[in-house]
């Protein structure tokens, strides 16, 4: 039905999108792996980060430079939210955490709506429409950058988790919370650091998305379910699973968009999601439910 080079182009484009998806999913899966909660505010935090990147651009700072300021800023904000809002108000019960993060997402999303209205905003950067000619297809430069930077950010995160003492503490808490606190690890602090790392991933993703995407108070919603799908597919809490899952979902979306048309394109993602949940809720890489 389609020539092979069109399909190949769709696969390549899917991989580019998939890398950013993977980055948003890595944040989510990390938080799940350590805190054992689903962070429903994930999409809203991404939206907030995109607004921050947008206003940085308004102030004359390119998103690719703003990322170095926004990532630490969102780390701090995420740390504070977990430590002073989610932690204390949920009394350590899973159901409560679910509701508190849902409440936070409603607050963030609608505060942005109240503040900035539902206008769709885009930025205009000189490299926005530059392309690389591959002979059979063109690749957009900002998307190639997003692909590379997402991989780099994921590698950095992997480095933090495996090479540093903080990373070791995070992995210890993820495995055995009580044991970790017995050997002197401050669990509340580790929780907050993890949540902060998740938020920082979103800040990076936001800066990478902005040159080719738009900002809108509900933009995060489009990503949050995709991120959930990836996390479930890759296995809740598995970072490599999230990376591979992200790339896979990017390609699936791109191909189902090609074959089913734009408006039905996303359905492929949800069907995979439901299927994985029902058939193998531990995901492809997860160890246990």
């Amino acid at each position: 039905m389609f020539a092979p080079d069109i399909i190949l182009a769709a696969v390549l484009n899917g991989l580019m999108t998939g890398a950013v998806y993977a980055l948003t999913a890595v944040g989510l899966t990390l938080v799940y792996g350590v805190l054992h909660i689903i962070n429903f505010a994930h999409g809203a935090i991404l939206t907030a980060a995109m607004f921050a990147a947008y206003f940085a651009w308004k102030a004359g700072i390119d998103p690719y430079i703003a990322v170095f300021g926004l990532a630490p800023l969102f780390f701090g904000a995420g740390y504070a939210v977990q430590r002073y809002v989610i932690g204390p108000s949920s009394h350590g019960e899973d159901r409560n955490i679910l509701l508190v993060t849902l409440g936070l997402s409603i607050v963030i999303e609608n505060a942005l709506l109240a503040g900035f209205r539902s206008d769709t905003r885009t930025i205009d950067v000189p490299y926005g429409f530059s392309v690389i000619d591959l002979g059979f297809t063109f690749l957009s430069v900002p998307r190639v950058v997003a692909f590379g930077a997402s991989c780099a950010a994921a590698a950095l995160l992997w480095g933090i988790l495996t090479r540093t003492d903080t990373g070791k503490a995070i992995r210890a808490v993820a495995k055995e919370k009580l044991g970790a606190s017995l050997v002197g690890i401050d669990v509340a602090h580790v929780y907050a650091v993890t949540f902060g790392l998740g938020a920082a991933c979103l800040a990076v993703a936001a800066c990478l998305l902005l040159p080719t995407f738009y900002v809108h108070p509900r933009v995060g919603n489009a990503y949050v379910l995709v991120a959930f799908t990836i996390v479930v597919l890759g296995g809740m809490g598995s970072v490599p699973g999230a990376l591979i899952g992200g790339l896979f979902i990017g390609v699936v979306e791109s191909l189902s968009g090609l074959f089913l048309g734009e408006s039905l394109g996303q359905i492929g993602i949800f069907l995979i999601f439901i299927l994985v949940l029902l058939v193998r809720p531990t995901g492809l890489f997860g160890a246990r439910a």
Binding site: I267, F270, I274, A289
Partner: peptide, 28 residues
């Protein structure tokens, strides 16, 4: 959902996904 033993967060996510599938189908 219950046959596959979905509980807690998994059940919440699953129901959310079903609603989204219906929304996309009804919209398209």
């Amino acid at each position: 959902s219950f046959r596959s033993g979905l509980r807690g967060s998994y059940f919440a996510l699953g129901t959310l996904a079903f609603a989204e599938v219906f929304r996309i189908l009804a919209n398209a």
